[in-house]
Design a protein around this nucleic acid. Structure first.
Lengths: 217, 217
DNA sequence: TGTACATCAGTGAACGCGCGTTCACTGATGTAC
DNA sequence: TGTACATCAGTGAACGCGCGTTCACTGATGTAC
């Protein structure tokens, strides 16, 4: 029964409980923000004592780091899946927006206000590059339209400052499109998720589609 | 000596101490984020006991609300001054960027991750509209270039959903420019202030200038 | 100009709370012969 | 198949901490006659 590398019942139980702890953690973050996350509160909600959680996470910081990692991973998977299925930037944009709206606080864990002093786990930078690669893939294949003279200067700069895309054969125009995709859509999404459009009477989705149209022109 | 409406020495002292409390509060926020703000820590730093601060602020929440108000006020003044001196959107953009870089945490207090459950003071919505008015002023006077067909759909939407600009005689094209100014520049600024460009090797200022060129084309 | 009184700033003790984390322990589950 | 031992999950008590906030108080500053 026990194949080499197969997990034991105990390991299965462990993994399951770790998952449930993270589940409750996300609920708490959704309810009170990341700064309101409390190990004791999670334990209480799961019907066990506080110290019990230390069997599964070494500290509160480790739990938060794990959540941040998962958030990055989830976004990278979403974007990669879309890119792999041949989506253009508009397709990626729709996938990104759906992902963001699905869990705003998860979005903010990746792109939100940084807490001075806190340092994100090292491995997220790798996942972040993975995200950029997917953007570059989509930006490279789609959008062959002529560049306006307005863009020449930025493309020249990017052609000489592309450490972030050193391993990718994207053209300067593709570099520019990928970056604008990122900054423009993030601008709308973060304002929308923060409720800044509330009461203005307009539909953020229209703004979003407008940007996607420009980016895939 | 005491003119009607003139402040007494005691009032002057009160105002001065309130200002110093806020000053220390900003320092703390810069060092540990808004969630790390502590009345007791401020008091200790000022060489007085914790309860003493309750002479000046009714609660921690009132202090934070005051800081948020001040942040909005400061931004509104910055933008209005620039607009009043006849600056175009590029000029406003430079003023905005300088303001943001001057104190990143102040920027995030206005546009950063919302804390679920916390409700911003009511009067900030009024200041927020004041900011939008300055943007609309600059967007209306400058930028008379022809719109691309890409923009037609968004402008049609905005023409019919302009509650936020109900009191302003801006054209649909100006509405669109003002909004894109806001979302695009916020996209770059918030990512830059959060350190998301770190290690990428590019200069965010180039991205920023590129957007300003597009917006004033 | 001096005295009597009111106002107000600031203190120190205290309350109640929840936090992260440690430690010694009990009891159940798995492993080895 | 049954027994002996090791592993591990979870508990309850405890530590130390800092938080926001209240309260009764002292002492200084201002105001009224």
């Amino acid at each position: 029964m026990t194949v080499a590398g197969k997990e034991t019942p105990r390991e299965r139980y462990r993994a399951q409980l770790r998952a449930e702890i993270k589940e409750r953690a996300w609920e708490q973050i959704a309810a009170a923000g990341a700064s309101g996350l409390s190990l004791n509160a999670i334990a209480k909600q799961m019907g066990m004592s506080g110290p019990a959680l230390y069997r599964y996470f070494a500290s509160r910081d480790e739990l938060i780091s794990e959540l941040i990692r998962d958030a990055y991973r989830s976004l990278a998977d979403t974007v990669r899946t879309a890119a792999a299925s041949g989506a253009d930037l508009a397709g990626l944009g729709h996938a990104l927006r759906a992902w963001a709206l699905d869990d705003p606080q998860r979005y903010f864990l990746v792109y939100g206000t940084p807490v001075p002093g806190y340092h994100a786990p090292d491995d997220v930078t790798e996942i972040a590059s993975e995200i950029m690669e997917s953007l570059l893939d989509a930006a490279q294949s789609g959008g062959t339209a002529a560049d306006t003279p307005d863009d020449a200067r930025l493309e020249a700069h990017l052609a000489e400052h592309r450490r972030w895309a050193a391993d990718h054969p994207a053209s300067p125009a593709a570099l520019r499109r990928a970056l604008l995709f990122w900054t423009r859509l993030h601008g709308i999404l973060s304002l929308e998720l923060a409720g800044q459009f509330t009461g203005m009477g307009l539909d953020p989705a229209e703004l979003y589609e407008n940007e996607l149209r420009h980016l895939t022109r």
